[in-house]
């Protein structure tokens, strides 16, 4: 399943490493990655493919949320269809 991981919060070292490490451990492939820093605020967006992952989608999302909380970031995993639906005719 194509999904979007977004990470936001105050910028600090090692965010990408932690998130991509988690995704790799769970066999989630990263297809695209981009990031922006707006002042102190860090925002990273990853397009991922979860079809190879053994973990159930919402459990994966909860795992990412917990991992995010550990590093003081908000991490979300959402089905890509919601963005496609809202922003494409």
């Amino acid at each position: 399943m194509r999904a979007v991981v977004t990470v936001s919060g105050t910028d600090r070292k090692g965010i990408i490493a932690r998130v991509s490490g988690f995704l790799s451990e769970h066999n989630v492939n990263i297809e695209d990655i981009s990031q922006t820093i707006l002042g102190e605020r860090f925002a990273m967006i990853m397009i991922v493919d979860t079809s190879e992952s053994d973990e159930e989608f919402s459990a994966l999302g909860q795992g990412l949320e917990r991992m995010g909380a550990e590093i003081g970031m908000t991490v979300r995993l959402q089905h890509a269809d919601i963005f496609d639906a809202m922003h494409n005719v």
Binding site: V4, T6, S34, T36, I45, I82, F83, D84, H87, N88
Partner: peptide
């Protein structure tokens, strides 16, 4: 496909 700003817009 959608862009970075659109992802952030939805989340906001």
């Amino acid at each position: 496909m959608f862009g970075k700003s659109e992802v952030l817009e939805t989340i906001d």
